[in-house]
Design a binder for these strands. Structure first.
Lengths: 193, 193
DNA sequence: AGCATGTGTTTTACTCGTAAAGCATCTCCG
DNA sequence: CGGAGATGCTTTACGAGTAAAACACATGCT
């Protein structure tokens, strides 16, 4: 297992000590340092969750920052790209509420983004003929071309960033995250959140 | 497997297919669905990175939402709690710029947060006697009590959320994230970003 | 038909974070 | 000394997201 299993400071009942040292020696992970500080201040608390949640948050922040680079060159923010991407990958028109669900953002945010993207000629809207409350948004040719042009770049860039981890570890990580995410999403739905 | 793309190491090394099927059966992970859509539209692209980055982002979003619940009961936002936590875990005063570095936010944001937290009586400021440009921020007793009161709740809550994964997997996940994060942070520093 | 109620979308008012400019103060060096 | 430049923090202007209200339309019930 992960080497220094029994945590320093011992005494903690349900002993599931993760944290430091797992074969890899010198590591600069800032979260580990933070968790270490907490443990010296509150040796009795189980800091385990921090090592996952703190890292997920921090990774998300760093990855986004890295991610944004190729998108910005195309003048797109990530939420905008997500919206265009949703249209591209589903292959058909979507209503604003579908877009909101698909991109995990609020309806109001979608309204604004669609407005902007329309002005830039990347998407078009049309009203539904039967139910005139609903709108349908679709990619213009320019929008489709933009997405198709950026996506490979974007993936290559992401791939390079992730190459910090070898292929095996990437696979494990994707699997674990998928499992966690799957159950989290299940829970959320169950709790009607 | 995912690798329509010949990736270094020959597809996914040891035959550890990512995406679907890894022992766990029915999974509702939305990212998997999205990736599937992309693959049917662009079968030639290596969608591997999405399965990590997309999931990290989504997990971060869901976890934050879940996380925020216990904090909000105490009337704190996460960035505010991070600031207080930084003061608590280091055990001593910090200057605004140290707080900014410690909480990964901009100096301006720290200024505002400190102002608010001061008004609520959770932190205090004093000017440095030698260098009158710098300020020192420290927790009040009320602030320290608040952090110490919330933290166990917070950790218990996080722990419950993460219990979707068994202890072993949590350990693996923490390790992998730590490794990725460590190298990402190294890279960022190297690239002076 | 006529009205109450529900649904899809947009608008409004507000919060929060940031980048860039603005102060105040220190340090270095002639 | 005394100014040039660096440093630490704050202020300002602004963009983006959200929740809640507003709007427009549909649907169902009597």
């Amino acid at each position: 297992m992960t080497g220094t299993q029994g945590r320093p400071g011992g005494g903690n009942g349900g002993g599931r000590g993760r944290s430091q040292a797992h074969g890899n020696g010198a590591r600069g992970d800032t979260v580990a340092a933070v968790v270490g500080q907490w443990r010296t201040v509150h040796p009795d608390l189980d800091t385990g969750p921090m090592e996952i949640i703190g890292r997920v948050n921090r990774c998300a922040a760093l990855l986004q920052q890295a991610e944004d680079a190729p998108l910005r060159r195309a003048g797109l923010s990530r939420p905008e790209f997500d919206l265009l991407g949703a249209l591209r990958r589903t292959g058909h028109e979507l209503t604003p509420s579908e877009l909101a669900r698909e991109t995990f953002s609020s309806g109001a945010a979608v309204t604004k983004r669609v407005k902007q993207l329309t002005e830039r000629g990347l998407v078009e809207r049309r009203g539904d003929t039967r139910d005139r409350r609903v709108a349908h948004v679709r990619l213009t040719d320019a929008g489709r071309d933009l997405v198709d042009g950026i996506l490979p770049e974007q993936l290559a860039y992401e791939s390079a960033v992730l190459s910090a981890l070898d292929a095996d570890r990437q696979g494990e990580l994707a699997d674990l995250l998928g499992e966690l995410l799957g159950r989290l999403e299940g829970h959320m739905r169950a709790l009607r959140v």
